[in-house]
Design a protein around this nucleic acid. Structure first.
Length: 505
DNA sequence: AAAAAAC
């Protein structure tokens, strides 16, 4: 059997790999490392979780042992689609490069230029970047790309999805064509192949099996659910509560707003939870991920920023709060669990309107996914719910106000709302033994902006559009006892009142 | 029906 010692890596690298506890390379490592050490271009087709990162980090470390970096002239350049992935590659260089004295610079957005500049001036052997920040540095004239010997383009298919290819082309043009290029992609559709043909010269092609075949260790289940956010949240909580094997889990939502909403909801329900999406400030993103990795946080609510590539070992559960719109994303998401042969569980909440996405997923993975607790046709009729009736009331009231009469209808509608609030307060008083700590863990930048300077938008974040907002009112009442919660205008607060409210605040 | 990435 091949061992790392057979691949031609330097002693320094080998001893770091041994110290990390590895002896046997994965297929992508065994296939890519020897030709990479021969200075061949590589076209690697491999998903994350296959050991892909080490397959370029280890040979790069070996090749970089001769020579030193000069100021503002990096010797190698690695392009990553997301900041978290870039940071993760940097960690790999720390880990496997501990016997080297290499300068590694991480150039990503969302953090200050200053420290990055200092590192560039010291001379970086390895530059790990997201495209935007790299180009920014280039335009400021802080960077000379003429000394780059090795270019790594990682997650090329995702770069394409994200519209980064023009940026990648601009960057590649600045680098001498004598460079060595290592190109990685999870899939090789024709556009990616064309791209590879443009960037690579006589590449060694290394392809490894998709991990969808290794995902046999993941138990996949579908959970039928009504299409209301609060029902989905309730179903999710119930599901989490019944998972005896749950060590930690990632909960995926399709939208950033839903990540923020679900995070707040779970937090209020007393779960150990974090959030991760691209509109959060970088510090929160880093903290959340770190907290989740060292088990200070049990659940991580995330957008697809976390679906691919993030190396979080030992995730026992994946919950899809939303069915992903693109079938491949399903594979990536559930690939967060059941890694390295461990067992894992993946639950997907499915509503009636999701069926066509579900069909596409089952077609892609070539199997039917079992229902957890009866399929969607067995779903009981939607319960007559507070939210639904209140939503309707809000609309009716609006119409009625514009009409300027029908006041009897109005009182008929208003009364049950008050009853409902009193009911809710009772429940809350029993359930919440002590006031929950209101520590703002997630810092939603977009949310802040909205509060800060746009009273119109502020309205939408205050309007009782879901049960979270109702919870907020309950809590306020419960915590401060400042009289009955005002029932007020519902969805139809006139704009001028919001302007006044904003001015007061 | 989305997310990601530069200030």
């Amino acid at each position: 059997m091949t061992t790392f010692a057979d691949l031609g890596l330097s002693q320094k690298v080998l001893s770091a790999v041994t110290d990390a506890g590895y002896t046997t390379p994965t297929p992508i490592q065994a296939g890519a490392i020897p030709p990479a050490l021969q200075r061949r271009d590589i076209c690697g087709i491999a998903q994350t979780g296959t050991g892909k990162t080490a397959s370029f980090v280890l040979p790069m470390l070996t090749l970089l042992e001769n020579g030193r970096a000069r100021a503002r002239m990096p010797r190698t350049l690695i392009l990553e689609p997301t900041r978290e992935l870039a940071a993760q590659v940097a960690e790999n260089f720390e880990k496997y490069g501990k016997n080297h004295k290499l300068n590694v610079a991480l150039l990503i957005g969302g953090v200050s230029f200053e420290e990055q500049n200092r590192k560039l001036e010291r001379g970086a052997d390895v530059l790990i970047c997201t495209p935007g920040r790299l180009l920014d540095h280039c335009e400021r004239g802080k960077l000379l790309m003429t000394g780059v010997e090795i270019l790594v383009i990682d997650e090329a298919d995702r770069m394409l999805d994200m519209g980064f290819i023009p940026d990648i082309e601009r960057i590649a043009k600045m680098i001498p064509f004598t460079r060595q290029t290592l190109f990685f992609s999870a899939t090789m559709p024709p556009e990616i192949q064309k791209l590879a043909d443009r960037f690579l010269q006589n590449p060694e092609r290394v392809e490894v099996a998709k991990p969808s075949s290794t995902a046999l260790t993941v138990t996949q289940r579908l959970v039928a659910c009504h299409n209301k956010d609060y029902e989905k949240r309730a179903k999710l909580r119930e599901l989490i509560g019944t998972q005896s094997e749950l060590k930690n889990g990632i909960i995926f939502c399709n939208r950033k707003k839903d990540v923020a909403d679900l995070f707040r909801s779970l937090e209020r329900h007393g779960f150990s939870v974090g959030a991760l999406h691209g509109d959060m400030d970088q510090r929160s993103r880093t903290n959340m991920l770190a907290g989740f990795k060292d088990n200070q946080i049990t659940l991580l609510v995330a957008s697809d920023v976390a679906a691919r590539g993030l190396d979080i070992p030992d995730v026992s559960h994946v919950f899809n709060f939303d069915v992903p719109i693109h079938a491949e994303d399903y594979v990536h998401r559930i690939g967060r669990t059941g890694r390295a042969g461990r067992s894992g569980a993946a639950f997907t909440l499915v509503t009636r309107s999701d069926t066509k996405f579900l069909d596409a997923i089952e077609k892609l993975i070539g199997q039917k996914i079992e229902w957890h607790d009866g399929d969607i046709s067995a779903l009981p009729a939607p319960a007559e719910s507070h939210d639904e009736s209140r939503g309707k009331r809000g609309r009716d009231k609006g119409r009625e106000r514009r009409g300027g009469h029908k006041s009897d209808t109005r009182s008929e509608y208003t009364k049950p709302v008050e009853e409902e609030v009193v009911e809710a307060v009772k429940v809350e008083a029993v359930k919440v033994a002590e006031p929950m700590k209101a520590e703002p863990v997630a810092n939603d930048r977009r949310g802040d902006k909205r509060h800060g300077n746009n009273p119109r938008n502020n309205r939408s974040s205050q309007a009782p559009a879901n049960d979270d907002n109702r919870d907020r009112r309950r809590n306020r009442y419960h915590d401060h006892d400042d009289g009955p919660t005002p029932v007020g205008f519902g969805d139809d607060i006139p704009a001028f009142m919001l302007v006044v409210a904003a001015a007061k605040a």
